[in-house]
């Protein structure tokens, strides 16, 4: 009696496909809203540094003088707060995680000079 509580399930398992995926062969599909990494569009940036101040882990640094934006990919916790608070919406959070690495990876973007901008 008691054995049969689980027996049906076990029999079904014998003849069904595995619940897991063959990962490296079948790549993982991320849903549209998945927060993987942030992408930056330098042309729209006004170097206001709101993202840098809001970032909980200080992964974003904006150098106003040199007009650069640096993202410390390994410090980023993918909360998406920078993307939400950017006034020009030049930061977006997109699917796909940063690949693991032996060193800490950071990425620097050069922000082009804007003719209208006073600062």
């Amino acid at each position: 009696m008691a054995v049969m509580k689980f027996g049906g399930r076990l029999l079904r398992n014998l003849f069904s496909k595995p619940a897991t995926k063959m990962y490296p062969v079948v790549p993982r599909e991320y849903p549209e809203r998945s927060r993987g990494h942030i992408e930056f569009d330098p042309t729209a940036c006004i170097t206001c540094n709101i993202c840098g101040k809001k970032c909980p882990t200080h992964a974003i640094t904006i150098d106003k003088a040199a007009r650069t934006m640096t993202i410390d990919r390994m410090n980023c916790i993918q909360c998406g707060y920078c993307a939400e608070s950017c006034p020009k919406k030049c930061i977006t959070i997109v699917p796909g995680y940063t690949a693991p690495d032996a060193q800490k990876v950071s990425e620097t973007f050069q922000i082009p000079e804007k003719p209208k901008e006073q600062a």
Partner: peptide, 12 residues
Amino acid sequence: FEAITGGRVIMS
């Protein structure tokens, strides 16, 4: 969770 909020565990 991942489809709606973007995170599997830490949903934010």
